[in-house]
Simulated assay, not measured.
Amino acid sequence: MLIIPYGKQHITDADIKAVVETLQSDYLTQGPKVAAFEKAFADYVGAKYAVAVANGTAALHLCTLALGVNEESRVITTPITFVASANCVHYCGGTVEFADINPATALLDIEKVRQLLESKPKGYYSGIIPVDFAGNPVNMEELRALADAHGLWIIEDACHAPGGFFYDSKGQKQICGNGQYADLAIFSFHPVKHIATGEGGMVTTNDEQLYKKLLQLRTHGITREPDLMQENHGGWYMEMQELGYNYRIPDMLCALGISQLQRAETGLARRKGIAKIYDEAFKEVEGIEILSTNPAAMGAQGDKGHAYHLYVIRVQDRKGTYDFLRQHQIFAQVHYIPVHTMPYYRSLGHSKGAFPEAEQYYAHCLSLPMYPSLTQEEQAFVIQKVKEFVGK
């Protein structure tokens, strides 16, 4: 029987050709394809600058380093995310605090963030890391206003949302990661993401100083720029000016990324089409609840800014549904186990029961297959089996 995963990369002959051409070139790493991918991706999301890195976690870590997170920093994020969204703060010695989610969207609840900020004196918190969970965009304009009122920076975790967007208060479309409201935004190119390079990530920003800082931190804290050096012994000379990391990405992966990016909009349209079919199939089914799209992402003409990395439903018997689907080779997944319930975070003083909406969401959520190469027949089979179990 055919296996239907929850997510899957789509590699074409054009992708393979792009990688082979790079393998046959003079560069395997830090060659011209890196800069070309950065330029193409910055253009795609509408940001001034982009920095390609080894993976999405490296992107988060570099962002926290560039913003100066340290032992005195306290940062707010959502408990419904992959652990890297929180871990990046701890890498720098900082402290993470969580705010609960909006139960309708599973996004960070901005009102809960406001309450948390107002419970402490100004300056107590350093920044916020919102997550465009499942591809559902956060209203970054609203969050920026709140952050400005409390002197906070923002890192937008847009790993799920390349091509996603919301409408601002003037009715203008704001693409996830465009840098209009967040200081920095990050993306992942893991195989199940919209753009797959195997491993890989990207940071986007409109801040030139942060951009230059990221470039240096990506390569051991080393610069070769003569204007930045304290000394210059000749053409070979380089200076390590701060402690950085080797978070570079190979040229061949960037070649794959460029090729994948060229059909990003086609893939996004297909994801939205799959979501629409799921919506129609489940909207009247008792026992199945569909996550709502952020109202800010809903256009007047019916266009939707949800990027649909995931399609999440909530069911009463999540474990039973999960097991039943696997019996029929449908490998649905759960996103995510609330971060604050992980043993590491519990060891830091976080506890179960602290964020009831996140925990209630986790108890019932299930991510159904969602990827551009999912066929109509496969999706129909998934829908049939979900209804069959829930109907019992």
Rank of each mutant, 00 (worst) to 15 (best):
R263N: 12
C365V: 08
Y124F: 15
D148E: 14
A255E: 02
F133P: 00
Q115K: 14
Y278T: 05
E141L: 04
L368V: 06
E97R: 12
H194G: 07
F82Y: 11
D157T: 07
R263W: 04
K17H: 07
Y6L: 00
E225S: 08
A196I: 01
A358G: 13
Q241G: 09
W236T: 08
K17W: 01
G93D: 10
Q180I: 12
E199V: 13
L261W: 05
Q24H: 10
A275E: 02
Q333V: 15
A59I: 11
Y27I: 01
D15A: 13
G221L: 05
F381S: 10
D183Q: 12
I76N: 03
V386L: 14
M342P: 00
I313C: 01
M202H: 00
L325M: 12
E141M: 08
Q379T: 10
A14Q: 15
Y91L: 11
A196S: 15
L67A: 09
L243R: 14
Q230A: 14
L243H: 12
G94F: 06
A363R: 11
D303Y: 10
P130Q: 04
V34M: 07
E111Y: 07
T64F: 06
R318N: 07
E142D: 09
T197D: 03
Q376T: 14
E357S: 13
W236L: 08
S25L: 11
L210R: 10
K213Y: 00
A297P: 10
G267R: 14
L348H: 07
T197M: 15
Q316T: 14
I110S: 00
K385V: 05
P343Y: 09
I222N: 01
F165Y: 15
A47K: 09
E97K: 10
I330W: 01
L374E: 01
Y211S: 03
P79T: 09
Q376W: 07
N55Q: 09
I155D: 04
N139L: 01
K392T: 11
A354P: 05
Q180P: 00
Y49N: 08
D207I: 10
I330C: 02
P5F: 03
L253E: 08
V386S: 05
G391F: 01
H190M: 08
Q115C: 09
R271W: 10
E289Y: 07
A145V: 12
V96G: 05
Y345C: 03
C88S: 13
D227I: 04
G179H: 04
S188N: 12
S347R: 04
Y124D: 04
T293W: 00
V51S: 02
T293C: 13
S188L: 03
V312M: 08
R346N: 10
A134D: 12
L268R: 13
L256R: 12
S292W: 00
L368I: 09
G273D: 12
M238G: 11
S169V: 02
A99Y: 05
Q9I: 03
G56F: 02
P103K: 05
F324L: 03
